[in-house]
Amino acid sequence: MRAQQLAVCLVLCFSAATVSAADGNQLLDACQQAVKYFDGDKTDVDRFKMPYCLGLVEGTRNTMALLDQQDPAACVPANITNTQAVRLVVKYLRANPEKLHLDASATILLSLMAAYPCPPRDAVK
């Protein structure tokens, strides 16, 4: 079931790419602007890229929460903030440059799956 839900999410993410054509490179650039802003450097921040990053991260997280209720792809804590999620995405993309060609939403999903893996189903009782 998890594989089916993940496949649906990835198909939706990749189909959105035909509209926006945004990939991990654009996401990393935009989210690095957001992190600069979070860290207090408000002087040289592209204020058009930052909301793009925040909105895409939040939207992907919300979509995951809706689609993954029975068998989640990632076990993201309920109390994680969007700021923390953005930092995770930046960390993941910097550590995995081979993923930068992927759709932006897919890279968010992959970063959350890497940071918050779910325990195997048979281990959860």
Rank of each mutant, 00 (worst) to 15 (best):
121 R>S: 04
29 D>P: 00
18 T>A: 07
108 I>D: 00
28 L>D: 02
64 M>V: 03
86 V>R: 07
81 T>K: 09
66 L>T: 07
110 L>H: 08
83 T>V: 15
90 V>F: 10
95 A>E: 13
32 Q>A: 08
64 M>G: 01
42 K>L: 12
84 Q>K: 13
56 L>M: 12
18 T>N: 07
123 A>M: 10
51 P>N: 09
97 P>S: 07
12 L>I: 04
114 A>S: 10
73 A>N: 08
83 T>D: 15
95 A>W: 11
118 C>W: 15
31 C>G: 01
89 V>F: 10
101 H>Q: 09
89 V>M: 06
53 C>H: 14
111 S>M: 11
32 Q>R: 14
26 Q>R: 13
30 A>H: 06
117 P>M: 11
48 F>K: 15
31 C>S: 02
29 D>W: 13
93 L>C: 05
56 L>W: 13
11 V>M: 07
22 A>R: 14
69 Q>S: 04
118 C>T: 09
30 A>N: 09
88 L>F: 11
70 Q>R: 02
30 A>E: 07
20 S>Q: 03
8 V>G: 02
97 P>R: 14
11 V>P: 01
33 Q>C: 02
21 A>P: 00
19 V>S: 04
79 N>E: 12
113 M>P: 00
122 D>G: 02
123 A>I: 04
103 D>F: 02
83 T>M: 14
67 L>S: 01
115 A>W: 14
74 A>L: 11
103 D>R: 01
112 L>G: 04
62 N>G: 03
88 L>G: 00
77 P>C: 05
12 L>K: 01
16 A>H: 08
27 L>F: 04
29 D>T: 12
39 D>C: 08
75 C>E: 06
95 A>V: 08
38 F>A: 03
110 L>C: 02
96 N>R: 15
82 N>M: 10
104 A>S: 11
123 A>R: 15
51 P>W: 13
112 L>N: 03
111 S>A: 15
92 Y>P: 00
47 R>Q: 04
41 D>Y: 05
15 S>E: 12
116 Y>V: 00
111 S>K: 06
50 M>A: 14
122 D>E: 14
41 D>H: 11
53 C>S: 06
49 K>W: 13
12 L>P: 00
88 L>E: 02
71 D>H: 11
90 V>R: 06
8 V>C: 05
117 P>L: 12
41 D>M: 08
120 P>D: 13
43 T>H: 08
94 R>P: 00
80 I>R: 14
118 C>V: 07
102 L>P: 01
26 Q>Y: 15
42 K>F: 09
116 Y>N: 01
53 C>M: 10
78 A>I: 15
13 C>G: 01
52 Y>W: 14
60 T>L: 03
37 Y>V: 02
70 Q>D: 14
27 L>V: 04
108 I>N: 03
82 N>V: 15
19 V>T: 10
32 Q>W: 10
74 A>N: 04
69 Q>E: 07
12 L>Y: 02
20 S>F: 04
123 A>Q: 14
121 R>W: 10
85 A>P: 03
120 P>H: 10
35 V>L: 12
55 G>M: 06
104 A>W: 05
49 K>D: 09
61 R>V: 08
96 N>A: 07
65 A>S: 12
121 R>G: 01
99 K>E: 12
